[in-house]
């Protein structure tokens, strides 16, 4: 199987999230400026910087994200600051969700969450899928997990 990428529109989701976070973080600064404790440019600059970092992160994140279903495991490769590569053996899959958050619904995307019994990587999420793709992926992983015949989760 070839390496699969996320839907490009996921950048929008992440950028929106970054914007929300930036807004949230600049709120106290903005309040400070409003009441005259800080010069006016502080919240603007801070907000712009945060937004730039967030959006940059979102773009890099998209470029980095890939996943792959191989014959025995699901491989994920992601992470900007800390690169994380996860191998989830198909036999270890407990259950699979496809889900859509409000923002994701807004841009017409969905994600797929794979659960294992592990303690650290108990759930891995593949974001940025079209709803059909998320459902397909869920079905496919379910089928593969069943086929892989895991006899004992723990």
């Amino acid at each position: 199987m070839t390496t699969l990428r996320l839907h490009p529109r996921v950048r929008l989701v992440w950028a929106l999230r970054a914007a929300l976070l930036a807004a949230f973080l600049t709120l106290p600064l903005a309040a400070g400026a409003y009441f005259g404790y800080l010069p006016e440019w502080v919240p603007i600059v801070a907000g712009a910087a945060l937004l730039a970092v967030g959006v940059g992160h979102a773009l890099l994140r998209y470029r980095r994200w890939s996943y792959e279903i191989r014959e025995d495991a699901l491989y994920l490769d992601r992470g900007v600051v800390t690169q994380v590569r996860t191998a989830v053996p198909l036999v270890r899959i407990q259950h699979v969700d496809s889900r859509r958050g409000p923002v994701e619904r807004g841009v017409g995307l969905a994600s797929c969450v794979v659960y294992t019994a592990g303690s650290r990587g108990a759930d891995v999420r593949i974001p940025g899928l079209t709803p059909e793709r998320a459902d397909d992926l869920r079905e496919e992983l379910k089928r593969l997990a069943i086929r892989a015949d895991g006899e004992d989760a723990v």
Binding site: Q83, T86, T116, V124
Partner: peptide
């Protein structure tokens, strides 16, 4: 036999 998943991480510093 007990491995649930395998995770490979690299922080900026590790890279």
């Amino acid at each position: 036999y007990r491995i649930q998943n395998v995770i490979d991480t690299r922080t900026v510093f590790q890279r």
